[in-house]
């Protein structure tokens, strides 16, 4: 099936089966490998991307659902001019959040989504919004810290 998809402001014309998960189109076909495969069942958040500005789990999103939409992946955050994305990535560096790093694209995409919705989240709001993003290295203390740092910077 012919599909049009805008990813990181670039239009792509693709021919894929409509039930193919967006994740595999992004990774295997378009080679945007910052978006990760962790579980394939919407249970870890490693595959989080934004569809029309909202975080989604691309591993369970059929390409047909994303067709015609605007997708943003972690590679598209830098230079996107989005102050929230910039603040989040910067806070991640300041706090040295990463360990193995494999979950971090997803964490960052979710964190940007959270701060868009709730610019000044409480601990409970962070816990609940980020609950779908697993980090097996358990960097949670720093993820939370970095979200607050980014929020403070944006508020200030």
């Amino acid at each position: 099936m012919a599909i049009q998809l805008t990813i990181n402001d670039q239009l792509h014309h693709l021919d894929v089966a409509p039930d193919t998960p967006l994740l595999w189109v992004i990774r295997d076909q378009l080679e945007l490998t910052g978006t990760k495969f962790g579980c394939g069942v919407a249970s870890c958040g490693a595959c989080t991307v934004h569809l029309n500005g909202t975080p989604i789990r691309s591993c369970v999103t059929p390409i047909s659902v994303a067709a015609g939409g605007e997708i943003r992946t972690v590679e598209g955050l830098e230079g996107s001019g989005d102050p929230i994305a910039e603040a989040v990535q910067q806070a991640w560096g300041e706090k040295d959040v990463v360990q193995c790093g494999y979950c971090q694209s997803g964490q960052i995409m979710s964190a940007v989504g959270l701060l868009k919705e709730t610019p000044n989240p409480s601990d409970e709001q962070i816990d609940s919004y980020m609950s779908g993003n697993v980090c097996r290295c358990a960097t949670y203390v720093r993820v939370k810290d970095a979200i607050k740092t980014a929020s403070d910077k944006l508020e200030g």
Binding site: V74, V98, I108
Partner: peptide
Amino acid sequence: DSKAKTNGSARFAMDVK
């Protein structure tokens, strides 16, 4: 390894094509 792991550029074996 902080920067490469926050902008999607860090290369893992899963990313090889």
